[in-house]
Structures are given as C-alpha cells and as structure tokens.
Amino acid sequence: MSKFTPRDWASHPSYLSPEYKSSRLRGVSRNLVEIDPELAELTGPAFGEEVLGPLDNDLTRNGRVNGEPLGERIIVTGRVLDENGDPVPNTLVEVWQANAAGRYVHIRDQHDAPLDPNFLGAGRCVTDENGEYRFMTIKPGAYPWGNHPNAWRPNHIHFSLFGPTIATRLVTQMYFPGDPLLDLDPIYQSVPAQSRERLVSQFSIDVTEENYALGYVFDIVLRGVNATPVEA
C-alpha cells in the first residue's frame, strides 16, 4: 500500500486563529481523529489537459470584452513538488484573484473600486512533466476587508491544487515580495513564523519578459506520495 507524509502541522495555520475573526466560529475546535490512510485517501480525481480551455492560463485574455485589462501584466510560474523534491506532473492548478484595483468579480465584493470589464480574474492550468505551471495575469491590487479597523489584504493570488490524491489537496494564497501589508495581515500571520515566507513569491528577472511583463516565481510543495498501485 502506498504511503504519504503526514500533514505537517508546523507548516500550516491553526484552525482557530482568533486574529482572523471568521475562524473563531468556523475553525475545527475538537481534535482531529487520526486514521490510517487507505484506498479512499490514496486516490483522488485525476484532471489533466482535457479540462483546459485555450485561454485558461492567460488571465490577460480570457476575460476580454472590448479591450485589454488595465494594470501591470505579470507572469506567475513555478514548480509543484512533493516533499521529496520530486515534481508533481499533470496536476491541475486553479487560480482566482482581484483585479488591478483590488476588486473581485464576485457579486458579494462591494469594495468601492472599479470592476474591469476586460478582466475576470480566474484561470487554470496543468503542470507539465517537470511539475511546472505558468500563468499570465495582471498584478492584483490590495483591498480592504472588515476584519478589524483599517484592515487591508496584501496583494495575493488564490491557488487550488490537487496533487495525486485527495490527501495532497491544497488551497493557499500567493503573496508578493516586500509587501508592507504582510506584517499586518491576520491570514498571512496565521501561518507559523518559520513557514510564512513559503507563501511569498520571488521576483525573477529571468522570467520577466522584456518590454512586456514582470515575472514572479512561486514554487508549491505538497505532501509526498509514493504512488504504488494497489493490487486486488
């Protein structure tokens, strides 16, 4: 039977992170019940290229109505790896984000900043055989939220990944280097101090395309899975 490395609770936030108000009534409060992983946890949905549309990895194009979206074009790329450093190939990466003004298309986002008719802010791609993914997008703006007085979320992009089984599932957020709001953000700060910087992408002049877009690198590490098929 295949095994995988446990969820590393020293790397993840606590379910109850009271500075982030919404966690107080929604975070799991009782101890998790440990079970031995079996087939149900050693399998999961396998989505590949077949779910991709032609512009899914280009958020500067997939929401266009009558022109180009406004804001700073960026490239976001990186590798999806497991804890052994092995690439996680052919796995689905979904992203969503605010526009350059810090406004989400989501109907509940009532922030007084303009929507961009040419920007949706959602995309997806599949990692290649080296575990690499790549998006073209617009740098998201910061936005205010109601958590505490004068609360602002740092610039961020939401990520959702599967990996090989449901055990490797990960939803996270990618941040940008040097953002002064990181020190003030209870969601980012909910992550143990020694692990936070793993959520901050790095500027890369090598990924940057001349006269076109800045490049940021964000590598993502999932639980390690040793995928050995289970015989009858």
């Binding site: 052994n84 979904e94 298309v105 959702s160 939803v171 969601i187 980012y188 793993r198 993502i220 999932l222």
Partner: peptide, 20 residues
C-alpha cells in the same frame, strides 16, 4: 524530507467565480 509543505490558506469568500 528535502522540502517543506506550502502552508494552507483559507479559500476565502470569493472562490465562486474561480472554482464553481
């Protein structure tokens, strides 16, 4: 283990147009 897991973050309130 040579790499450390990327920390989890909340899906937030605005996932709907991206995931569903």
């Amino acid at each position: 283990m040579v790499m450390k897991q990327t920390p989890s973050q909340t899906v937030g309130p605005y996932f709907a147009y991206g995931l569903t």
